[in-house]
Design a protein around this nucleic acid. Structure first.
Lengths: 166, 166
DNA sequence: TAATACCCTGTAGTCACTCCATGGTCAAGC
DNA sequence: GCTTGACCATGGAGTGACTACAGGGTATTA
């Protein structure tokens, strides 16, 4: 029997908030730990490893549902690894799509930012003018990199591509 | 009096889901519309413009709280525009920070993806090995661009920087 | 008259946490 | 023995920006 840790110790060892640890347990990602006599959770090294694995996956922006799937593969080493493959591929696709839209976004905001030099009234603010013009569907400098400006599909697509994660 | 539209028409004209339109109304972003005799919402051109404005801002990933602030500036054109300035600046900062972490993420995932060529058992999968190794704190190829791999602070910081939006 | 395509309200669910209220446990200091 | 403070427990609510759904009303067309 190895030494056990309380939740606060596990949290410190992994840099994970104790509320998050309890959340992972409730979500079925972290096995239910034993309890010491006073009712405190008692974690072992297996929990520490597992929690580190989860956090590493989360650092890669992998959803908890996918982390769960990866943990299944870890638990069943004889299974075909094709799923792992596809999972990481899909994750990479999502990240790349989001990266692309973030880059466009950065350009748009930078252009918008350049429209306002010094202080004046809102009525004269180039940024506000630009935003209103874009809403009107007029040509606007902040979209120089995209073909059309405020047509319904382009706007909602941009939002969709940034929102959708599963 | 200009022609009015029902919610479905407004939705089609702007590419916005009708549930989202109602949500914006409840959130106080879209003015409460008049109702026709049957109780249906009756929108005018002002609503269409405003909704387009909101969506354009959302396409720039500006939070609804900030969109509200921008709408206040639109409503009070004599106010000092400094707030607009700062708002866009802060937005740009957020986007750039996120962009940076997304780029690191993309590299990590790409490296991870390269670890698995053909199909085999999960036990032999390079991806899984890599993830487990990372969780153990061993040197892992997917972090060649970052100094340390799975120390608590670096992992949680990475997650934090990607989660925080306000 | 029936089907359908709309519209209404209100509530609950999503994701991955985060915060809070309320109360129990334990060790140290007085 | 008592208090203080650091921990731990549970359950429930809140976050943002929607999205989905149940259960009903209305309007148009066949």
């Amino acid at each position: 029997m190895d030494t056990t840790m309380r939740i606060g110790e596990l949290g410190k060892a992994t840099g994970v908030d104790i509320e998050t640890i309890r959340y992972y347990e409730k979500a079925g990602l972290l096995p239910v730990p034993a309890r010491s006599q006073n009712g405190y959770r008692a974690y072992g090294s297996a929990h520490l490893e597992r929690l580190a694995f989860i956090r590493h996956c989360r650092a890669l922006d992998i959803s908890l549902a996918d982390v769960k799937r990866l943990l299944d593969f870890v638990a069943h080493p004889n299974a075909d690894c094709e799923g792992i493959d596809l999972l990481i591929d899909a994750q990479l696709d999502r990240v790349r799509a989001r990266l692309k839209s973030m880059q466009a976004l950065e350009q748009q905001l930078a252009a918008l930012r350049g429209r306002c030099g010094e202080r004046h009234s809102a009525a004269e603010c180039g940024i506000l003018h630009e935003l209103v013009a874009a809403a009107h569907g007029e040509a606007c400098a902040c979209h120089f990199d995209t073909p059309s400006c405020s047509t319904e599909t382009s706007v909602s697509d941009k939002i969709d591509s940034r929102r959708k994660k599963t």
